[in-house]
């Protein structure tokens, strides 16, 4: 009889193996990318340096080409735990700035997307004329014009959270529209006919059939939307003169060659994205459970 493989063997072990391999590759890359700098300094000092002497030095450079993982972790630990949350040196403070813009943009984008989808499903003219432009709107690289939006909105006195949130909104409404249109149209003809025989009004059909049927689609798109609205918020922070936020940390780091700072901001952004997607995923399971659908 075949035994069912455990969750650990099936899912955790492969991922851990790959992660471990990546870590090893990272450390090897650290040695090779940072070694030339050590040879240069040794060469300038007029001494020769052996490989075994280079090896430990590459791990603790001030401004390495590629910081070692433990350096990044130390930097993250230092800037989250050892600094007050309100301090401008705290990564938590910057992450919070980015997060608030992300969430505001995500909520606005989600609501806008749902409203547009409802309009598109119920109005043929809107469907035919609007849908192609919704798709075309995404070929405009909005991230590329983010600096202009920020600067222009600043010029008329709108600054702070809202401009960044608007960029996130623009990015996140699209997946929601596409997903929701699909979802609101997912009830089959036979189900719509049943509603018709019940003499259900358009509103009743919407709330009792179309809306519940669209939930899986909605959450699938919301996952994409939340990830992309974080990207929007980060890019929105690039041109503001590097004041605050994860994007500003990236830019400042790249100006001053602080690679460790760039990497730690990058890791923070990754953690933020993972958390946001996970929260949406949890909401998804909770809603489906409430509706009595087994996920």
């Amino acid at each position: 009889m075949m035994e069912k493989p455990s969750v650990f063997q099936e899912r955790v072990l492969p991922v851990l193996t790959i992660l471990f391999a990546l870590l090893v590759i990272w450390y090897v890359a650290v040695v090779f990318l940072n070694a030339p700098f050590e040879r240069d300094t040794a060469g300038r000092a007029g001494t020769t340096i052996t490989f075994s002497e280079i090896l430990p030095k590459t791990m603790f450079q001030q401004r390495p080409v590629l910081p070692a993982p433990h350096q990044v972790i130390a930097e993250i630990w230092d800037t989250t735990v050892n600094k007050a949350v309100t301090s401008k040196r705290s990564l938590v403070y910057h992450a919070w700035i980015t997060l608030s813009a992300t969430l505001l943009g995500f909520i606005m984008g989600g609501v806008l997307g749902i409203l547009l989808a409802v309009g598109i499903v119920h109005n043929r003219a809107m469907d035919r004329s609007f849908m192609p432009w919704v798709i075309a709107s995404q070929t405009i690289p909005i991230l590329a014009i983010a600096p202009m939006i920020i600067v222009v909105l600043n010029a008329i006195g709108i600054s702070g959270l809202l401009p960044k949130a608007l960029i996130s909104t623009y990015l996140s409404f699209f997946p929601v529209v596409v997903g929701m249109v699909k979802g609101l149209r997912s009830p089959e003809q036979i189900q719509l006919d049943l509603m018709h025989t019940y003499h259900a009004s358009k509103a009743q059909t919407f709330w009792k059939l179309r809306w519940p049927a669209s939930m899986p689609y909605l959450f699938a798109s919301l996952k994409v939307a939340v990830a992309i609205s974080l990207v929007g918020a980060i890019v929105g922070e690039l041109p503001t003169g590097a004041v605050a936020g994860l994007g500003a940390r990236l830019l400042a780091g790249s100006y001053y060659g602080q690679t460790v700072q760039i990497w730690s901001a990058l890791f923070m952004a990754a953690a933020l994205a993972a958390t946001l997607v996970m929260v949406v995923g949890l909401a998804h399971t909770a809603v489906l459970k409430r509706m009595g659908i087994k996920p």
Binding site: L19, A227, V231, L266, A269, A273
Partner: peptide
Amino acid sequence: QKGLLPLGNFVSALPVIGVAPI
């Protein structure tokens, strides 16, 4: 495959654009 797929999905959701300065 089992190891790379979840990681690939995860990385797709990350703000990869942040590697630009590096």
